[in-house]
């Protein structure tokens, strides 16, 4: 697969193109230029490291939306075995923007639920760009209940621009579907580990994002509103998205500093899209650790801790009684 480079990665792209050219030359020349290629490759790595060390919030948003990042079904393939996809909400339809099913993780049976985006135009449309409709949330809820019944821990993978703003979605109770999930996940009697692997878009993300631990990949975002949406409301111009991204505090490091996520999973150099296998390895370690931690607690204590965490969200001032 040819790497797609983002705007701010252009210097890397140019260097990589040069390396590619030299490789081509090397094939049909007697001259040994492998030394030169190695030198350029090293330079490209250093450049990538430098650029990625200084990403601003808007650039991170671009990486989070990178078309070559692993999506939920890629993580399923990379981390789980025996995956059996389960479809439909048993009431209206099967929403392709949320996938889920049973699988084994390190041999142990689990439930996997996540948003799913598409790669090519046809699949993007089929997956509705990862924007779920009410039936998607209701399918997720059905699978969560199933997991509870059979004592399967749940892993969710969050990657959505947000819930789909459509006429049908409203008619079928988008609000209720999201709200119901928040309520049920708060007291579901099985461990829940949520990971943001790309875009954490508002209510559409939160609807499968309530649990015992919140993990986030290094170059992922989680926000109450998209930077573009916020900019067009508060600055009256979508061009201010980069400013909005900065001030909304949507990057992994700021979320961690504000106590809104528990763990940041490091991505390979240049982002998850550059090296899927390395990303899967880091994810496997993070998920294995997290599940082991949660397994240490008896279910009652787990649920109590979960409630206390939810209850504690917020930043406010308390004026002592006079």
């Amino acid at each position: 697969m040819k790497t797609t480079f983002l705007d701010f990665e252009q210097p890397i792209a140019e260097l990589e193109a040069k390396i590619e050219e030299l490789r081509f030359v090397q094939d049909d020349s007697a001259l040994d230029i492998s030394e030169e290629i190695r030198r350029l490759q090293k330079k490209s790595q250093t450049l990538t490291k430098d650029i990625y060390a200084k990403l601003n919030a808007w650039q991170v948003s671009q990486v989070a939306r990178h078309p070559q990042r692993p999506y939920t079904l890629d993580y399923v393939q990379g981390l789980f075995t025996d995956f059996v996809e389960l479809h439909g909400d048993r009431a209206y339809a099967d929403d392709a923007a949320i996938v889920g099913g049973m699988a084994r993780f390190n041999g142990e049976p689990v439930m996997v639920i996540g948003h799913q985006k598409g790669r090519d135009t046809k699949e993007k449309i089929y997956r509705n760009f990862g924007m779920p409709r009410p039936e998607g949330y209701r399918k997720a809820l059905r699978l969560m209940r199933l997991a509870e019944k059979f004592g399967l821990p749940i892993f969710t993978f969050i990657d959505t621009p947000g819930a789909y703003p459509g006429i049908g979605a409203e008619e079928r109770g988008q609000s209720e579907a999201i709200a119901r999930n928040l309520y049920v996940m708060a007291e579901l009697k099985t461990p829940i580990v949520c990971t943001i692997v790309g875009e954490g878009g508002s209510g559409g993300a939160l609807a499968i994002g309530v649990g015992d631990r919140m993990l986030i990949l290094q170059y992922s975002t989680y926000s109450v509103i998209s930077p573009e949406g916020c900019a067009s409301i508060l600055w009256k111009s979508a061009d201010k998205a980069s400013v909005a991204a900065e001030t909304l505090g949507i990057t992994a490091d700021r979320l961690k500093a504000n106590g809104l996520v528990d763990r940041v999973v490091e991505e390979p150099l240049g982002g998850a899209q550059r090296d899927w296998d390395a990303m899967f390895q880091a994810m496997r370690r993070a998920l294995t650790d997290t599940l082991a931690e949660l397994r240490k607690q008896p279910l009652d204590a787990l649920l109590d801790t979960r409630y206390q965490r939810l209850r504690a969200y917020g930043s406010f001032k308390e004026i002592p009684a006079k």
Partner: peptide, 22 residues
């Protein structure tokens, strides 16, 4: 949700819903 408090606001959805379970 109030944009000016960012993700703190989004988490109030989870917090208020959780309170209702009690």
């Amino acid at each position: 949700a109030r944009m000016q408090e960012g993700l703190f606001s989004l988490m109030q959805m989870a917090k208020t819903s959780a309170a209702l379970t009690q």
